[in-house]
Design a protein around this nucleic acid. Structure first.
Lengths: 226, 226
DNA sequence: CGCCTGTGTTTGGCTCGTCTAACTGTGGGA
DNA sequence: TCCCACAGTTAGACGAGCCAAACACAGGCG
């Protein structure tokens, strides 16, 4: 049942044209999707074969019920995601479009529901004027450094912990041991030993040893390079 | 310069194997990426041609400096996105992987920085025990309806406004006219007139007319179907 | 009625990513 | 030392998705 992403794009585009009150034409689709008419004809053939729309030579392009349902799901996700990226995360419209275009083919319904709950809750907070959201916006407008996992830092280097990407026990263990954003780490060394290497470094004056699992879960902001 | 997504996957996989302390082999890559060895050999050829790694017949697979840099960027985005989807949005690990896998090839650095600012701010709020976050989590754990744009509702139907997906002037206009989440709308009718149709409906006892632009920006929860 | 313009189709050709099946190299153990 | 198991490669094929160029059709206008 899983259609290719591209096929879903064609379906979505047909729906968009219908929504604007026109009947989809090959030329229009070609323009919207940025391909040649020949490519559209070929794609319509495949879509017709799989029963998602009807298209006879020189005839109109009409979605079937199945096709329309699929198209609506894709359209909904697209609008929804691009709205999320623009309004909540502050992406540019263009970038939001790109990301939404790709993601719309990948998320399932339950995921969509979760995401919807998230954005609707944030929108609510916005209307209620939660102070915390202002701080968030402020942060997002200033440039933000990109961290590197500890295991990829150069020998002898150090940095400040940015985040911990781990779940469950490992997360708890690191937490309990004092690893948290903002903490300083220095004098990282990689030596042989375990498969994946052994990483030693200094935190709060203590020497610590990591295996690869821990060392790839702790992300550091690198100090300013000179 | 823009590599295909798949090529970036190969690069990323090589880096992951290196990070775990091994040297990447064709067999290992085939397993990690879920393809046959023949496919890997072909991909390595393309990657070698574009100068991202070095690979001679029966030789080791070694990233070049350019390849390693590219691979790190992809890896960082991947880890970062999947962490975001799991920790912040509560996706399943598997779904988060899928989405991250696709998105990692699509976002650029400035977008990544924005997203990083967002998640880091949320993580901070979490540590500070912001009450508002608890409410958010609560909402996300209960099933959430999926809305439909007004322009796609059936004739005579109605519903409750879920959200407004519009920017700038249109958003302001709708806002000023009283369109907001929670408001009831009934007796939606579509008639011909403008290109795209004219939509009339009832809100707060008033009759309102929409063009297609407005009607596709207002999303409604459909009432329970019987 | 016939012609012209523009819409839609066909043809042939390309790349990427994938496969299966057959082949070739390599390195460790008997 | 030689041989075998397995790692890696090559050959040949396929579908999706794209293109350019040539062709076919349809509808409006003179």
């Amino acid at each position: 049942m899983s259609l290719t992403a591209r096929v879903e794009d064609y379906l979505e585009s047909v729906l968009e044209i219908e929504m604007s009150g026109d009947i989809a034409t090959v030329t229009q689709l070609a323009k919207n999707l940025g391909v040649t008419k020949a490519t559209v004809t070929a794609a319509l053939k495949r879509l017709d074969d799989s029963g998602l729309l009807e298209h006879e030579r020189y005839g109109d392009v009409m979605l079937t019920a199945a096709g329309r349902e699929k198209a609506l799901a894709v359209y909904r996700r697209h609008e929804f995601l691009s709205d999320f990226f623009v309004r909540i995360l502050g992406f540019t419209r263009e970038r939001a479009q790109n990301v939404a275009c790709v993601m719309e083919h990948e998320i399932d319904e339950s995921t969509e529901r979760r995401l919807a709950a998230f954005t609707d809750a944030l929108a609510l907070a916005e209307r209620n004027g939660e102070a915390w959201l202002d701080e968030l916006k402020g942060r997002m407008d200033s440039p933000h450094e990109l961290p590197v996992p500890l295991c990829l830092m150069e020998d002898g280097s150090g940095g400040v912990i940015a985040r911990i990407t781990a779940q469950y026990e490992l997360r708890k263990r690191l937490n309990a041991a004092g690893f948290a954003p903002g903490v300083d780490i220095s004098d990282i060394r990689k030596t042989e030993g375990l498969p994946g290497g052994v990483f030693t470094f200094n935190m709060n004056g203590m020497g610590i040893r990591f295996g690869i699992a821990e060392a790839s879960a702790v992300w550091l902001y690198q100090p300013e390079r000179v």
